[in-house]
Amino acid sequence: MADEVSPKLIQIGPKGGAKKDGFNLVTERVVAVNPEGKQLEVELLAYDGKTVVLDVDDEALEELRKLKVGDGATIRVVEEGGKRIAKSFRIRAKDPNAARADAMLLDLRDSHWLNRKYAAEVLGELKDVRAVRPLVDALTDEVGDVRQRAYDSLIKLGGPAVSLLVPLLVSEEDELRQSVTEIIRKIGKPAVEPLAMALAEADDRLKTRVMKVLDRMGYKPKVKDEAKAVDAPRLT
């Protein structure tokens, strides 16, 4: 009878070597759970969100059924017969702030304006960058109180919000254009670099608006006469 082949480490990363007892795979998000097919798909944030499908050992099926899509988990993995086998699972507690942000992102799309208003306010307090796009969209909410909370929260989010706000500086809607201008000005210094980057690709109309905002903030972009290129704004 041939000797059994010892399990070996799956080389997902460049570091580490073969280990008979496998290794721990940490995932922030379970993508799919398939107890019937004895498989599990998880997302690997360290690899730009790529996913990996693991076969699940029979002895781990009971633990597999406890996993839910969206859970974080630490998974003990070995390779046997050329297959990735999950031997055990440990559900990882989710960051309470991230969990709350998930709930608020859903509420920001709720049909009741009070829920949208509350969600817009809380997302600013949590400073979760995933909220930038939904909050920018909320600047055009039909309810003024929701728009105001989105306005305030985008200021709290600061620099990460600027790149999505810049295109709205040339909006045809006066109220939206004015709100965006004020938000960027109130963000202050963290907005300068994103504004400078926007100048490099902006058309003439948007470039004029960006230059005007920078001027009001006290920053004078230095323009080279020869190439008409724009350097990063500097305070004068």
Score class of each variant (00 low, 15 high):
residue 135 L to M: 11
residue 60 A to E: 02
residue 177 R to V: 01
residue 99 A to N: 07
residue 187 I to Q: 06
residue 215 D to T: 12
residue 84 R to D: 06
residue 201 E to A: 00
residue 182 E to L: 13
residue 96 P to D: 07
residue 198 A to I: 11
residue 198 A to S: 04
residue 174 D to V: 14
residue 75 I to D: 04
residue 94 K to W: 01
residue 26 V to F: 09
residue 38 K to R: 15
residue 65 R to D: 04
residue 59 E to A: 11
residue 165 L to E: 05
residue 184 I to Q: 03
residue 111 S to P: 01
residue 86 A to K: 10
residue 184 I to N: 05
residue 222 K to G: 00
residue 55 D to I: 04
residue 82 G to C: 15
residue 209 R to Q: 15
residue 133 R to M: 08
residue 3 D to F: 04
residue 45 L to S: 13
residue 221 P to N: 01
residue 178 Q to W: 07
residue 98 A to H: 07
residue 229 A to Y: 02
residue 25 L to F: 03
residue 192 V to R: 05
residue 133 R to D: 09
residue 85 I to R: 12
residue 115 N to T: 09
residue 20 K to W: 01
residue 42 V to L: 11
residue 180 V to H: 13
residue 185 R to S: 07
residue 173 E to L: 12
residue 63 E to K: 15
residue 163 S to C: 03
residue 136 V to D: 08
residue 203 D to F: 11
residue 234 R to P: 10
residue 225 D to G: 15
residue 102 D to S: 06
residue 12 I to E: 06
residue 49 G to W: 03
residue 68 K to V: 04
residue 201 E to G: 00
residue 106 L to G: 03
residue 212 K to D: 06
residue 229 A to D: 03
residue 172 E to G: 12
residue 33 V to K: 10
residue 138 A to H: 04
residue 26 V to H: 10
residue 212 K to W: 00
residue 208 T to Q: 07
residue 16 G to V: 00
residue 221 P to S: 00
residue 201 E to T: 08
residue 167 P to E: 06
residue 40 L to C: 13
residue 34 N to C: 00
residue 108 L to G: 02
residue 134 P to C: 10
residue 2 A to N: 03
residue 143 V to G: 05
residue 204 D to R: 13
residue 76 R to F: 02
residue 111 S to K: 15
residue 141 D to H: 05
residue 185 R to W: 02
residue 74 T to W: 02
residue 2 A to P: 12
residue 214 L to R: 00
residue 55 D to L: 05
residue 233 P to W: 02
residue 185 R to K: 12
residue 52 V to R: 00
residue 25 L to H: 02
residue 156 K to N: 14
residue 35 P to R: 03
residue 166 V to C: 10
residue 125 E to Y: 10
residue 177 R to L: 12
residue 98 A to I: 13
residue 122 V to S: 02
residue 51 T to Q: 12
residue 169 L to I: 03
residue 229 A to R: 06
residue 105 L to G: 06
residue 194 P to Q: 01
residue 69 V to H: 04
residue 19 K to F: 05
residue 211 M to H: 05
residue 150 A to Q: 11
residue 232 A to T: 12
residue 184 I to W: 10
residue 153 S to Q: 03
residue 22 G to K: 09
residue 151 Y to Q: 09
residue 155 I to Y: 15
residue 52 V to E: 01
residue 86 A to F: 08
residue 191 A to K: 01
residue 85 I to A: 02
residue 70 G to L: 00
residue 24 N to P: 01
residue 226 E to N: 08
residue 218 G to K: 08
residue 41 E to K: 14
residue 58 D to K: 14
residue 101 A to P: 05
residue 58 D to T: 07
residue 160 P to T: 03
residue 214 L to D: 04
residue 229 A to H: 11
residue 154 L to P: 14
residue 220 K to P: 00
residue 58 D to L: 15
residue 37 G to I: 11
residue 36 E to R: 11
residue 15 K to Q: 12
residue 220 K to Q: 11
residue 113 W to H: 14
residue 211 M to Y: 01
residue 32 A to E: 13
residue 92 R to G: 06
